[in-house]
Design a protein around this nucleic acid. Structure first.
Ligand code: FES
Ligand code: FES
Lengths: 166, 166
DNA sequence: ATTTAACCAAGTAAAACAGTCAGCTAATCG
DNA sequence: CGATTAGCTGACTGTTTTACTTGGTTAAAT
């Protein structure tokens, strides 16, 4: 089992999609800036998310990605599963044969742990996360920062002063 | 977070130690044979386990390792912690600064997950595992196989016939 | 003195991670 | 039409980790 930035990025990106849902597709460039994830890396992750029917894509200008299902029907476990192999803690993928074909001493423990983790992560939907206060606070900060970035990039003189003040 | 054979080996080896406790120290060679883990790799893992005060070593002939505490006072989480870095699912080690110094969108989710996993694994002691029926069955099989190996290695002629019969 | 088994340092092949780079295709807009 | 946007794809790269192996040294028992 492994949970690295790969799985964390995937969930973060999906949550970003959920938070900004409603006004058409979201481009990966937007997610990249807001969440601080490399654009090319996001493309790789979204290829997998798309293959697993978690998102739909729209090409061309104004295009981007949308959730393929409603937020309440996408849970964290399946997002991680889509990019990682799985949230499986066993070394035998549940088969009970990791010690040269036979069950190892700790097989049942890892099965229990896997069940535990899977139950926890699959009980949390994107909708649940969107409703959380801590998530909303971070999202608000990110949106504010993104707005500032856009003002600066369009060459607004006031933005330089605002930055100096900080 | 990662849970690979490293952590699994460590727990398996500690459980082997717990199962065969009572008749003096257990050599790594014994554990290696019973659990099918490379001896040199075990040495590396036990160096860490010893540094974390989970085992005591006895050198010389008849030497080996013993649990440094009673079985009920050693839990699975600390064994994994000793060889791995930790069972931490966050990218910031709980600090909340993985997005260039600021809290990322999913930080709290990974904190919750970490708590969940830690609570589960730290609630299970070696003593609990030893008592489990599935563990006892595997241990019985392994001890039987080990006995057969010893008979064969001492050149008992009957062992060849026994193997042929299987 | 020899054997046993812990202890230690270094190296290694293979895999995974976290990207980058270069180029392609589909849709929109002026 | 052509330029731009943004999704899509494949290959490639540096770094880290994994799961070992090799080759020793040291302490204790026989
Ligand atoms: S983890 Fe399933 S048999 Fe070892
Ligand atoms: S995981 Fe803690 S801030 Fe991102």
């Amino acid at each position: 089992m492994r949970l690295t930035t790969k799985g964390r990025y995937a969930v973060t990106a999906m949550l970003d999609l959920a938070l900004h849902e409603g006004r058409g597709p979201i481009s990966l460039a937007d997610i990249s800036e807001r969440q601080g994830i490399s654009l090319s890396y996001l493309e790789q992750l979204f290829a997998k998310l798309r293959r697993n029917d978690l998102v739909r894509s729209v090409r061309g200008p104004g295009g981007g990605y949308q959730l393929s299902r409603e937020q309440g029907r996408i849970n964290v476990a399946e997002v991680i599963d889509a990019v990682n192999e799985s949230v499986d803690a066993t070394g035998c993928h549940g088969k009970g044969d990791c010690q040269s074909g036979q069950t190892c001493l700790t097989h049942h423990l890892w099965c229990d742990l896997s069940d535990q983790i899977h139950a926890f992560l699959s009980s949390i939907s994107l909708c649940d996360l969107v409703k959380r206060k801590d998530v909303q606070e971070v999202a608000l900060r990110q949106d504010r920062e993104r707005a500032d970035q856009l003002i600066m990039s369009t060459g607004e003189p006031a933005s330089a002063e605002r930055k100096a003040a900080v």
